[in-house]
Design a protein around this nucleic acid. Structure first.
Length: 111
DNA sequence: GTAATGACCTTGG
DNA sequence: ACCAAGGCCATTA
């Protein structure tokens, strides 16, 4: 049950991601105080589709801006489509101008 | 209870 | 600059 708390934390941060913005697992993990647990953040996203409200996991990508978890969506195209809907340009499963649309929790939440 | 895996990141050679 | 290995935390087998 305690693990749900960590998951909830990740979900909350991801849910606060503005439209047209993306973030990486390390940032979320660091914001939660567990930068070393970047893997757990990704694992939390694994159950994102099992949580309500749904979590915009498509806005979360790896440090490279690569859509690593696209395969975990209902359909790999869904993530790309969602990103395109957010006006986010995606090429080869990687976000363009990633550093530009990069959303840092410390800049929006911690402040 | 131990071992292996995973939507990762950092550091070393 | 590029390639390889380790580490960390949680879940599953």
């Amino acid at each position: 049950m305690a693990e749900k708390d960590f998951f909830q934390m990740v979900y909350q941060v991801v849910r606060l991601i503005p439209k047209g913005r993306v973030t990486n697992y390390g940032a979320i993990a660091a914001y939660l105080g567990a930068k070393s647990s970047s893997r757990v953040v990704g694992y939390a996203m694994n159950g994102a589709h099992n949580v309500k409200p749904k979590v915009p996991a498509h806005r979360v990508v790896n440090r490279n801006g690569l859509l690593t978890g696209k395969h975990h969506f209902d359909t790999p195209y869904q993530m790309q489509e969602l990103l395109e809907k957010e006006k986010i340009k995606v090429k080869d499963d990687k976000v363009i101008d990633f550093k530009k649309i990069y959303w840092d929790p410390f800049e929006e939440l911690k402040i």
